[in-house]
């Protein structure tokens, strides 16, 4: 790896989705987005649902939506582990809107959900909302 390039990997349980090099990658950390440049200090962070942006120069080359997961930075580069990831430009806005609506209805329809159930449904809404946000207002 060249000193000014950051090795970046996006891995889902099923396969390695993306393995590339970039100048900078911005990941949606649980305590706010953070940019990872080459030679970043080692860090492990939880991710919230949001968009991973791969930068080439000052342009965003790739946008990927992740529904939470982990990011690990070490001397070899950045690894993002995400259970669900998809390219933002492949998301259909109408479908994303529908999914958010469905998720909200699921919560509204649930009769006396247990605490686990409620947390699960709320999480689904959160993910759907972030997903819609990702398509509608790309940053």
């Amino acid at each position: 790896m060249a000193e000014d390039r950051l090795a970046f990997e996006l891995v889902s349980p099923e396969r390695v989705i993306l393995a590339t090099e970039a100048e900078m990658v911005v990941v949606p950390g649980i305590e706010g987005d953070f940019g990872v440049l080459p030679l970043h200090a080692p860090v492990v962070s939880l991710l919230r649902p949001g968009v991973v942006r791969v930068y080439e120069g000052s342009d965003v080359k790739t946008r990927l939506f992740v529904a939470g997961g982990f990011a690990e930075v070490n001397e070899r580069g950045l690894t993002v582990l995400a259970e669900h990831a998809e390219a933002v430009d492949r998301i259909d806005p109408a479908e994303a809107r529908q999914r958010l609506k469905n998720a909200e209805e699921d919560l509204a329809d649930a009769k006396e959900p247990s605490e686990d159930e409620r947390r699960r449904l709320e999480r689904a809404i959160e993910i759907a909302r972030a997903r819609l946000e990702a398509v509608e207002n790309p940053t």
Partner: peptide, 30 residues
């Protein structure tokens, strides 16, 4: 080998672990 690096944890070790352990279980089963 490579696990020597001292990591910073965000938010903190415990919270990450609580999230990671069930996933690890799922991955093992998978």
């Amino acid at each position: 080998g490579d696990g020597r690096a001292i990591y910073e944890f965000e938010p903190d070790e415990r919270t990450i672990l609580e999230d990671l352990l069930p996933r690890n279980l799922a991955v093992q089963i998978y």
